[in-house]
Design a protein around this nucleic acid. Structure first.
Lengths: 339, 339
DNA sequence: CTGAAAGCGCTTACAG
DNA sequence: CTGAAAGCGCTTACAG
């Protein structure tokens, strides 16, 4: 159907090599020849077949990004940043989501679309270190994103979750809050993806000389708004009386606020709320949300650069753990006031 | 680096063809041979090179999806649905975003990643019919999403925007609202992507015997929360006194609510607000949002099926315009009350 | 049921 | 500065 290099060469009366040179802007082609080839290309409407190029070069210029859930604005915003950064490096992004299910994460990790993607950026939720052992070097570079820690030789990019959580809790204790609830996520009873942030909560309370009241910890099954609202309600139903809430992420914080407001509890007057992620949505709503803001641009940039560096052999041999920065953004949900 | 079919064939002592048969689960292979090949595959850790397969078959199993902005939850949610549907058809999705810029939309439309994507689903904002004329048949099927109308031979999937807008406005007039503002988007003065919804606003007001007060129409430069808030403020600043707002999308509706609340205007008591998109975020916030809910699942399904059908030659020759359903979801932002 | 061979459309040493 | 030829790793008629 489409014209090939050969067709162009034939029409222009030159060799295939010469056409290839022109197409790829190689030097050392006489202006006259170049012009002749150009014309032939236009006439035939030639478009290079990238698949053939890929096969020949062993590279496709495609990197895959797998996030748990595009419905979570944090990941949507992150994906946008990755796509932009990748484009700047002449890479295109193949996007997949795992729903945070281990089986899907493993699938993506093990020879997903072999040879059609050059590298993979994965934000895992349930994945275990053992799942990573089956991965083969020729599956290309893998960069892990986020909180979970792995004993596997891959680059990982994550902000310091414990320190970030402590910053959030410190902000609350600084406001005079003493009964600070933690709303976190737990998928199965045995495991808690939120454990680093929970640890930060514990450490900071201890440091502030406050008790770690475990009855103020509420676990959820998912990571969404409804989960946050349900956890908040459960907490209040069982008689807990927190004066502040630190939620695993913004979505759950927003859900918690919703639940509080519906019960007539005033935010921030009676309960202050801090989230995590700094999704744009948090700036809206009746009560704008104080949150820990990971530097998404930096995360995206580092992840893409890491993949590219491994691909071009530029990077050192050893896998690295990189910690981008974060900031606490203070908004209405923790506005100071007279108690 | 990785083992090839040839290596496997060699080790198993069979021909390349036989290995290929095994890999592709073709029938007519003796169990014994199959087993031998299997073992060789395991031993060498063979992984088929999909790029080579693609070149040979002329298909890649990749479709591209280009939306304006992943930061808009509507598109993020839609993208998620497209990825899921595509996976069900054994397709992977390459995602790109255009920022709603015509130049980028044109780029995506004209031989984007030639031969590496089998088809394209595009949600355009600024694209013109003339931009589509340059597209070549061998660029693969293109399915257009959304409101804009084109005089070009491509499938298009969009809910009936005029009727949907009328439904929204009718809901407001039914509540006794008379001064219904429209907050819409305009990129350049000459063009209004929002014109179909604006037309619905006009038609319905006319039908209700109400005046079309053009001073109640506010145009924005973008499509986000801030744009909605700014438009709402502009409206109020210039003395308009709407008793209801119909916004082009949920994000702008949310922005408008925020602006109203900040000025001490009560929603829905003083001003009712209706959005468009039914993003999950609209169900939260202090005031949950009434909205027109396009059937995103249906849109995603139809778009993918359309691409696949064209690819397999299953579909008819003529391009079609398909209108998925929508519903009006009534929430607090238009709760009835005593005026 | 299995094999030998051509070809998908490129790029790239190797010559000249 | 340009050409002839090999080869990337598959699939697929065509034989047998």
């Amino acid at each position: 159907m489409g014209a090939s290099l050969k067709d162009v060469a034939h029409l222009a009366g030159v060799s295939v090599k010469t056409v290839s040179n022109v197409v790829n802007n190689h030097p050392h082609v006489t202006p006259a020849t170049r012009e002749r080839v150009r014309r032939a290309i236009d006439e035939l409407g030639y478009r290079p077949n990238l698949t053939a190029r890929h096969l020949r070069k062993g590279r496709t210029g495609i990197i895959a990004l797998a996030v748990p859930e595009l419905g979570n604005p944090y990941f949507a915003e992150l994906a946008g940043a990755v796509i932009d950064t990748a484009a700047r490096h002449d890479y295109t992004v193949l996007l997949d989501h795992t729903a945070g299910r281990r089986e899907k994460e493993v699938l993506v990790t093990q020879g997903f679309r072999t040879h059609v993607i050059d590298g993979l950026i994965l934000s895992p939720i349930e994945l275990e270190t053992s799942d990573l052992l089956g991965r083969r070097p020729d599956d290309g570079p893998l960069v892990l994103l986020g909180e979970r820690e792995y004993e596997a030789p891959y680059d990982q990019i994550a902000i310091d979750n414990v320190a970030a959580a402590r910053t959030a809790v410190r902000h609350l204790t600084g406001l005079g809050r003493r009964r600070i609830a933690f709303i976190g996520a737990r998928r199965e009873t045995a495991r808690r993806p939120a454990h680093l942030r929970l640890r930060g909560w514990r450490e900071e309370l201890l440091a502030a000389g406050l008790p770690c009241d475990e009855s103020l910890v509420a676990a959820t099954d998912g990571y969404g708004r409804w989960d946050g609202a349900a956890a908040m309600n459960a907490l209040l139903d069982r008689g807990a009386r927190p004066d502040a809430v630190f939620a695993y992420n913004d979505l759950m914080a927003l859900g918690a606020i919703r639940a509080l407001v519906e019960r007539g509890v005033r935010v921030p007057q009676e309960v202050s709320v801090v989230g995590f992620d700094d999704i744009e949505e948090g700036r809206f709503g009746a009560v704008s949300l104080t949150t820990v803001a990971p530097d998404k641009q930096a995360i995206a940039r580092l992840a893409v650069e890491r993949v590219v560096a491994r691909l071009t052999g530029t990077s050192g041999l050893r896998p690295e753990r990189i910690q981008p920065g974060y900031t606490l953004v203070t908004r209405e949900s923790t506005a100071p006031h007279t108690v």
